[in-house]
């Protein structure tokens, strides 16, 4: 047990060092992606399977595809060897010393706080009955601290607007069709099970690991697969239904929070008899918005369309 943990921790540290010091940018990116997957594995060991799912899907998977795609778009040789600047050696040594000192203090601090009360966490577990879902994390995200999740949807929307302003699509006509390792027929075959498992993850969030973010990420992953194989491509025409779906989660979340005030007396509270259906509705709408936002962060275009064979 502990041996495996120690090995995982050691590998994480080695990969982090590799990611920072690797001579080639591609090696650094690959180290980062492997690190993300191992991190997900560690989180399974640390009783956080739903977070491991999110990290594997979003942190390592989607981000990995984005990183590699960006690397391909850089001029060859960029970021490989950097021209040394004066005092570089001593500056690096000072930075290294500072960071080692910080690491020691941080590790001691984390060790020191391994035991103690957690009033908010205890309260969350105690009030789980009233929250309308059995899964504690989902209850915190969508009920106890729903306001954070709502503002987070704002972050997603604003980064999407920022990305679309740059118009540097990762996936354009030249890249889409031929240079793919995954044939289109295979993608078509995989699509239904991936979509189903994404929807299942959203649904399962109420009582087991999963939820809007993990499900949304898997749905986005299905979209990215379609884009990579050329079945779906970004288009420069943005249309009203797509924009509506992008804000669906945030809008529904806010409106239910405001409109239910007369019934509950509090903003973002749910009446007892409606809490479960409302949470499921909000969860699905959030998942749709998240999936589309992540997908369009990937394509970098304001619209999506199917490629006609």
């Amino acid at each position: 047990m502990t041996l495996l943990d120690g090995l995982l921790a050691l590998l994480l540290l080695l990969l982090a060092g590799r990611c920072v010091t690797a001579a080639s940018l591609l090696q650094a990116i690959v180290a980062f992606i492997v690190l993300g997957l191992l991190l997900a594995l560690s989180w399974v060991r640390l009783e956080a399977p739903d977070l491991a799912l999110a990290e594997a899907a979003i942190g390592a998977g989607l981000l990995g595809v984005l990183l590699l795609g960006t690397w391909r778009r850089l001029p060859a040789g960029s970021g490989e060897q950097e021209t040394p600047w004066p005092w570089q050696g001593s500056a690096q040594a000072i930075a290294a010393l500072g960071c080692v000192a910080l690491a020691v203090v941080l590790a001691l601090a984390l060790h020191e706080t391994t035991l103690g009360p957690a009033a908010a966490g205890t309260a969350a577990l105690a009030q789980l009955e009233a929250a309308g879902v059995d899964q504690p994390v989902t209850a915190v995200l969508l009920n106890f601290r729903a306001y954070d999740t709502l503002l987070e949807m704002g972050v997603l929307l604003m980064t999407l607007i920022g990305t679309l302003m740059l118009r540097r699509p990762l996936q354009d006509g030249a890249l889409a069709a031929p240079a793919t390792p995954l044939p289109q027929s295979l993608a078509r075959l995989f699509l239904p099970p991936i979509l189903l498992s994404g929807l299942y993850l959203v649904w399962a969030g109420a009582y087991s690991p999963g939820g809007a973010f993990q499900g949304g990420a898997v749905l986005a992953g299905a979209g990215v697969m379609l884009a990579l194989t050329g079945l779906l491509r970004g288009s420069t025409r943005d249309d009203l239904p797509l924009r509506c779906l992008l804000v669906l989660g945030a809008a529904l979340f806010t409106l239910s929070g405001v409109l239910l005030i007369p019934l509950t007396g509090h903003f973002m509270a749910y009446p007892d008899d409606l809490v479960t259906p409302l949470m499921v509705l909000i969860e699905f709408s959030l998942a749709i918005s998240i999936a589309l936002s992540l997908m369009m962060l990937f394509t970098g275009t304001p619209g999506l369309c199917r490629t006609r064979p």
């Binding site: 009030q127 009920n143 306001y147 973002m268």
Partner: peptide, 8 residues
């Protein structure tokens, strides 16, 4: 927000 009170 949400009416769950302190500390949550």
């Amino acid at each position: 927000l949400g009416g769950w009170g302190e500390p949550l």
